[in-house]
């Protein structure tokens, strides 16, 4: 597939779960669109409960899809059976957040890494060993780790093993679900560099899910901001983060502390008047038909609570789901 072609295309995706009360429905994802070009990375950001992990699960066939479609490399994969998933796994792989739980503690690292190959009928021991050694080398581990168990490795090393398992089949798209958030800062940087190197070497695409906007800014070309299962804003990562077009995006960015005491204190003092702190309310309830962010939004007006905002084009070439775009941007000054 040549660069620039759409590798992944999600249209109107909705994932519903049954609520605790009888008959109630939790809309984990509601009408999500995204498209990912081959060789690029899209970052998905949002708070817990925003649906970002559900999006990954839906693409991986691990979540109940209510409506919408998912196309990967031109093929509709919305409701594939387990057997057809096997072919798909040549293209699509995943790395999870918690490296301790994503590796089976009872089987050796070698057995874990070779599993995708065995699934595709490669059982020749020599070839397996060769490819395991190559995958381990790509993630910066020495080949003698194959006979050890995951418990003998640190978090960063386990994450490298999980990446090696995803890489060994030469996929085109890797879904990275919070892959660095459980890691220490110095290890996080190593893994981010590794992912960036691998992307360059193999023309990999990433769907990169993270709550950390700095990480997403670093690794992604595109960004998708989710809140309560809906798209708030999407666009080019650097542009969106520099000039957010949705109040929620701005809130997310401004909440991430800057690692510079002067800049951070300046930012927080400037914003002190905006929202009296202590605003954590009991439940974030919102009108189904309105904007989910309206109860927390300082720019909300009547229409925001009763009418669902459509996705509008922004001046920067992205989309935002805000009734008050662009006038809120002028109001914040």
């Amino acid at each position: 597939m040549s660069e620039g072609e759409r590798l992944l295309e999600v249209r109107g995706l909705a994932v519903y779960y049954h609520g605790r009360r009888r008959g109630s429905v939790i809309k984990a994802l509601d009408c999500i669109d995204l498209s990912l070009e081959s060789g690029t990375a899209i970052g998905v950001v949002g708070e817990s409960g925003s649906g970002k992990s559900t999006l990954a699960k839906a693409i991986l066939g691990l979540a109940p899809i209510h409506s919408g479609s998912i196309k990967l490399a031109g093929k509709d994969i919305t409701s594939l059976k387990q057997r057809s998933r096997r072919e798909l796994s040549r293209i699509l792989q995943v790395v999870f957040q918690d490296p301790s739980s994503s590796l089976n503690p009872y089987i050796t690292v070698g057995t874990t890494i070779e599993e995708p190959l065995r699934v595709h009928g490669i059982n020749n021991r020599e070839e397996l060993n060769q490819r395991i050694a190559k995958a381990l080398d790509q993630v910066g581990l020495s080949p003698d780790v194959v006979n050890r168990y995951p418990g003998q490795f640190s978090g960063g090393q386990k994450q490298r093993i999980a990446i090696a398992r995803a890489l060994i089949i030469n996929p085109q798209l890797i879904i990275c679900d919070e892959v660095v958030s459980a890691l220490d800062l110095s290890i996080q940087a190593q893994i981010l560099n590794l992912l960036a190197d691998l992307q360059k070497s193999f023309q990999l695409s990433y769907l990169f899910i993270s709550h950390d906007i700095a990480v997403v800014r670093y690794i992604s070309n595109q960004i998708l901001v989710l809140y309560q299962g809906r798209v708030m804003e999407s666009g080019t990562a650097a542009v969106v983060i520099k000039n957010p077009c949705h109040p929620y995006t701005r809130e997310l960015i401004a909440s991430s502390p800057i690692t510079n005491p002067r800049a951070q204190r300046k930012q927080r003092d400037e914003r002190q008047w905006e929202r009296p702190s202590g605003g954590t309310s009991f439940t974030e309830e919102f009108n189904e038909n309105g904007c989910p962010f309206a109860p927390r939004c300082q720019f909300a007006i009547d229409i925001c609570t009763i009418e669902r905002p459509p996705l509008k084009f922004t001046d920067d070439g992205g989309f935002t789901a805000c009734h008050r775009y662009p006038e809120w941007q002028a109001l914040q000054k």
Binding site: L60, R85, S102, V119, H120
Partner: peptide, 12 residues
């Protein structure tokens, strides 16, 4: 567990 999800994604 995530390792079972990973295996399932792989088509095991």
């Amino acid at each position: 567990a995530d390792f079972v999800s990973a295996a399932r994604v792989t088509g095991v």
